[in-house]
């Protein structure tokens, strides 16, 4: 059951270029891996959607990359500050998979620490644009890391159940090779709970409201 609550920031640590923000869990349910939360971005009109990265006891952890005013505001939060967090939202990964393989690119690794913990540390292939970005791979056990120009698709193994998250070109390339993959998509979102109709993405010519239809969608 989703709730919104002002939660105290426990820690804000750098992981390569990314920020790992941990907040007290309050009465929020961590939900299922791949689900997301709307995080208040202090001083900004709208919150920002973040998939849950870690669910340590009593806490919720979010990994984010500063790419705009909202994520910069979030990356600047200090321990003991309170921010409103709303969730869990959307549909996470289907977990009834026999041979899971996590495939992620860049900040797309965000949901994998939690997903990996729930699935019992399955193998992962993680791609990054630099060694600095690749420091985030330390959050995911059992991961093979590739750095550009090598792409994750060059290391995809057949006969695995692919659970992917990353930039759109990566997801498109993954679904070509693994039609049974589960893909976590991303879009600008104002509300996260179906109210704004803003997060529609066009997949194969069809518009899908990502917050309620996804963010995890079957590739085929």
């Amino acid at each position: 059951m989703r709730r919104r609550e002002a939660l105290r920031v426990v820690a804000n640590e750098s992981v390569g270029p990314y920020s790992l923000i941990r907040v007290e869990r309050g009465s929020l349910d961590p939900g299922s891996p791949g689900q997301f939360f709307m995080l208040e971005a202090p001083g900004r009109p709208l919150p920002r959607p973040m998939s849950l990265c870690q669910a340590p006891p009593g806490e919720l952890g979010f990994l984010l990359e500063s790419i705009g005013p909202g994520t910069r505001a979030l990356a600047a939060v200090e321990p003991r500050e309170k921010i409103h967090v709303f969730g869990p939202l959307g549909n996470g990964y289907r977990l009834d998979v026999e041979r899971p393989l996590l495939v992620g690119g860049g900040i797309g690794v965000a949901p994998f620490p939690y997903l990996s913990a729930v699935l019992g540390s399955p193998p992962a292939i993680l791609g990054f644009r630099s060694d600095w970005h690749a420091e985030a791979a330390s959050l995911v056990p059992n991961a093979e890391v590739v750095v550009e120009p090598t792409l994750v698709t060059e290391r995809l193994r057949p006969d695995h159940d692919v659970l992917a998250c990353g930039p759109e070109p990566m997801l498109e390339a993954v679904r070509e090779l693994a039609p049974n993959a589960q893909l976590a998509w991303e879009a600008p979102m104002a509300c996260g709970y179906g109210a704004c109709y803003g997060c529609s993405v066009e997949i194969d010519g069809v518009l899908k409201r990502l917050c309620v239809a996804g963010p995890v969608l079957e590739a085929a």
Binding site: G70, M189, A190, C196, Y197, G198, S200, E202, L207
Partner: peptide, 23 residues
């Protein structure tokens, strides 16, 4: 109506823009 193609929303300093297009 299917509505407008993405991107459909953009936050600004003191508000937001939407172009959902009457989906």
């Amino acid at each position: 109506r299917e509505g407008n193609r993405p991107v459909r929303i953009a936050e600004t300093e003191a508000g937001m823009l939407n172009s959902i297009g009457l989906e």
